[in-house]
Design a protein around this nucleic acid. Sequence first.
RNA 1: GCUCAAGUGGCGGAAUUGGUAGACGCGCUGGAUUCAAAAUCCAGUUCUUUCGAGAGUGUGGGUUCGAUUCCCACCUUGAGUACCA
Length: 937
Amino acid sequence: MSYDFNTIEAKWQTYWADKGTFKAENYSNKPKYYVLDMFPYPSGAGLHVGHPLGYIASDIYARYKRHKGFNVLHPQGYDSFGLPAEQYAIQTGQHPAITTKENIARYREQLDRIGFSFDWSREVKTSDPTFYKWTQWIFTELFNSWYDKDADKARAISELEKLFSEEGNTKVKAVCDEEVTLFTAEAWNGFSSKEKQEIVLKYRLTYLAETEVNWCPQLGTVLANDEIVNGVSERGGYPVIRKKMTQWSMRISAYAQRLLDGLHTIDWPQPLKDSQTNWIGRSEGASVTFRVKDHNEVIEVFTTRPDTIFGVSFMTLAPEHELVAKITTPEQKAAVDEYIEATAKRSERDRMADVKTISGVFTGAYAEHPFTKEPVPIWIGDYVLAGYGTGAVMAVPCGDQRDYDFAKHFGIEIPNIFEGVDISQEAFADKEKTVIANSDFLNGLNYKKAVKTAIYELEKLGQGEGKINYRLRDAVFSRQRYWGEPFPVYYVDGMPQMIDLKHLPIELPEVEKYLPTETGEPPLGRADVWAWDTEKNEVVPNSLINYTTIFPLELNTMPGWAGSSYYFNRYMDPNNEDEIFSQEAINYWKEVDLYIGGSEHATGHLLYARFWQKFLFDKGIVPVDEFAKKLINQGMILGTSAIVYRISGTNKYVSKGLKDQYDAEELRVDVSLVNFSDELDLNGLKNWQPQFKDAEFELENGKYIVGREVEKMSKRWYNVVNPDGVCDQYGADSLRLYEMFLGPLEQAKPWNTAGITGVHGFLKKLWKLYHNGEEFVVGETAPTKDNLKTLHKTIKKVEEDIESFSFNTSVSTFMIAVNELTAQKCNSKVILEPLLVLISPYAPHIAEELWNKLGHTTSISTTAFPVFDESYLVESTKQYPISFNGKMRFTMELSLDLSKDDIEAAVMAHEKTQQQLAGRTPKKIIVVPGKIVNIVG
RNA sequence: GCUCAAGUGGCGGAAUUGGUAGACGCGCUGGAUUCAAAAUCCAGUUCUUUCGAGAGUGUGGGUUCGAUUCCCACCUUGAGUACCA
């Protein structure tokens, strides 16, 4: 019987599903292990061969851990809210839920064919009301919490209100909005309910605020900072402008320091940690207050170099800074207004593209230096960003290149406050070599001491303090979209009210169209049944709104990252209707042990998920404050596009080798039209698209050879390879082996279908080893020394490979093992059984089939991983006493079957040996023919 | 500019407490089988060579008996990030 992979694979996939082989129990005597993939967004295009790469790796690890005696949780689900389904709905009118359902069915079919060991009984979908009930609940929990800086954790709002009523807000150290005014307990108790709500809102971990947001007119929605790339939207590449809107925000900035600290406790890739560190952007320094002369105003600046305070020769405000209008003198007003208008016109993108141009204008006003009391001119300039720090800087031209360039350009004085440094050409920014001069009490001090002293003196004056600044901004949480989680929020007198857990989920209402309304409201503004009855506690028609018992509901929906910020915990107890998950379940599984997914989520999903986990930890809902111990970024699988060359203005195509003789343009054609040797199927091309119907070709050696380009797999390049096709032709086991064999997991690598014959050949050889024609044959004789050596070599290597996630080299190891056993004519059951266990994580179907043929009635996945025995590898080593030059004696360890004479001759013949051994008495020399390999001692 | 990662045959890539560089696969060459092709099997395949050997892991140095591996400088490529005060 030949290796009929299609039948075998279908058979075992059905078996696993029927028997529930991979169903995980929440209680076990075995140690637990949680292997997770980043769940997919089910797009209409289906899976291409790049998608399963990470899933195959995690599946291998999950299956390996089962062999190692772990109770393994390996679930899968869908991140099923999102833009593509909504945009399809806008175009076709089809409900996104239908599109999503179809796409999920297609994904499931494709995933099932690859033979993953997912526990599908735990499947979650973020767009499923039974799931987003808990997304809504977490939102209300965040709303009902504030961040206490003293306790360094989130606490209940009720406790904050109690503090306010007892002592006002003067002593409370909380993370809150900047413009909070101080009040006493008496004042608090005298406030109206609405005033109280307005104040508390400034403290909540999710809050409503008038914020300047990134508005994308084409998409009709706001975008988070990480959804913008180079000033245009990540999706679609549309321009983004700044606009003020009332939006929900998440106070992630409260967790900035803990998000930073937590990175040291988790085993994640360094580049990913670096980009999170960068995104959080902690910088240590001081805030300094400058009085504005002739005005009752102060300018607060943040600086990382308080030691250079005596080098300040001007100040710069961002053009958007609120003080600009107040302090500009009448003489300068025209110039300032003109400059502000010019800046506003320039898009974010232009501003970034053109960093070199120095621009700015003097306001006419002066500030007072805190120590010297000298006047400091106040300028505005667009090199100062309104969104960072306080939007104002104290300019020290001798110590900062941008300040230096600005001062040079406008002829502002550049005082030198560094000892022994020439600043005639450029600023001096080397902290290590800094010695301060011309600076009163800071003279002669180095950087560290000067910083300390300056802050101390500023504090004495009451004009500054040490401060840590973070780049991390609060995350906008509202989207003007239909296909997302609705907020469990209604409004009474303009103030948001949360709907209690017992009435959740608040399900998405039906709408006629999925576009924003004519008045610019989000799509939910089109819903007719979208009001909240506070007596019946249910959603009722808008027509009933009376503002006494029935109120309007929130029209925004949540962003894509809401559901993905905690789904990994929900898998632990996914069908629980009463709780997000039981405490028993979360305390058993605790956290993800291994998380595999793409690096593109570094500053989005992976940061928000850590934030929510820390919040849930503060609330005592989860037992650990980092959700994933280890994370691996799998690399992308790239496509290999095929290119034909058309002579410009004609319908003639020339083969790759001839293209330089013509003025030819490049066209991409479907990769399935090209064989392994880059030869194009001419008739296939003619039938592929009408434009090629009458194509003429100029061939080389009778063939049309295409050009190749490695680039991202995408429909528009016609380079997508579908896993179903690979499974049809070679089988899922070949696909799995080949995806691993392609190269290291973390690296980006091009797909090349030609190479798959290699791993497919291996499976055929493995099959042949057990079969004599149609008959299944297994040897009952005892294994030889060589057989055992091959086996244990393989056990050792495969175990090391899996533990270090070097799945690519394991495939080679299997090939070597099967080649050796074939050469040894070994089909001994004693060898083959453990070998199958080794192979089963990679190629589970064939392993299961042969395991079954060996007479086992249980799944191979329940079998223990074979134990490595070193004695089979070192047995052939012998030790010989050797004399050298008639003086020294040492021992030789021979790992090859060579005679003593051979070795001695080899050592003597080797010229370098005498130098190497001069004056040394080695204990042991490892030798191979002609060379000394290792001298020990 | 800054940060990080990586440079090994025609190609993907092996090789870690520093010890036979190029495993394994693709491709290519030759052979067997076949009327022929596909499939399969066997042998060869870093470069140079006067067939003795010599050179060789981006470049130049260093440490070592010995370096793809460790150290220094440089070059190249990729990724991320950027007027962050």
